[in-house]
Amino acid sequence: MGAENPETAKPNAEGATYEDNAAEAANEAAEASEAQQAVEAELEKFKQLAEENATRTLRAQADFDNFRRRTLKEKEEFAKYASQKLIEQLLPVVDNFERALATSKETKDYDALAKGVEMIFRQLDGVLSNEGLQRMEAVGTPFNPEFHQAIMQVESEEHEEGIVVEEVQKGYMLKEKVLRPAMVKVSS
């Protein structure tokens, strides 16, 4: 070993030399450096995790936006063509009306025209019934403002008060919903 520096070889108050203190400080610095590297490595790991989560969030948001746009488009498309089925069922009725009008112009047989129009009416009524349209029966029933629109009160000896005595315009229901209330005269 070489010559020692007399100042570094002197023990301090605890009995350690300056060389011991320097070595201990170097060890502490190395441990602090390792701890800092471990913290930095963990910090980097969490940064990557945060970036991955941000990317996932952006993808999920983009997927949701695409889903919302697609759903809105489908909804608009459905609303645009919702009546297609009904119109397809009504086209034969229109065809029959055209045939009846053309035939009546040629033959002038109004009895045959009336019979044809009656048949077409039954065909139209069948199409509408298949779609859930029902006529309301109003005459003889108690007045109900949910189903009836009173346009007049009339004196009636054969009906008690509040009973529909005459139907001026038919009322219709579409499945369970009132489509048009019946216009009625009610006994007073």
Rank of each mutant, 00 (worst) to 15 (best):
V139F: 02
E155S: 12
K10Q: 09
F46C: 09
K175R: 15
F143H: 00
L133T: 03
E131N: 05
L43R: 12
K85Q: 11
P142D: 15
G140K: 11
E76A: 11
N66A: 09
P142C: 10
F147P: 01
A112H: 02
L72R: 09
F121H: 15
L124T: 10
E157Q: 14
A25G: 12
V184D: 09
A29M: 10
E157C: 02
D63I: 00
F46T: 11
E28H: 06
L101E: 14
E19K: 09
V127H: 05
Q153W: 01
S104D: 06
V154R: 08
R180I: 01
A100T: 07
A25R: 05
K115Q: 09
T141M: 13
L101I: 12
M173A: 07
L133R: 05
R56K: 13
E52Q: 14
A35R: 01
H159Q: 13
E52Y: 10
K75T: 10
E98R: 14
D109M: 04
Q149A: 03
E19N: 14
A29E: 08
E42H: 09
M136W: 01
E76W: 12
Q36S: 10
V165R: 00
E7V: 09
T17V: 04
G162R: 03
Y172L: 11
E4Y: 01
E118K: 12
G126F: 04
A82D: 15
E76R: 09
P142I: 08
V39F: 14
K80Y: 07
N5D: 15
A60Y: 07
N12C: 10
F78D: 11
V168D: 04
T71C: 03
K185E: 02
R135Q: 09
E42Y: 05
D111Y: 03
K73G: 03
R122L: 05
K177R: 14
E77W: 04
L90D: 06
L91H: 06
G171F: 03
R70C: 00
A41I: 06
V165I: 14
N12L: 09
A60G: 01
L179P: 02
A79M: 14
R135I: 05
E77L: 10
L72N: 08
A62E: 03
K177M: 08
E166D: 15
Q169H: 11
V165F: 04
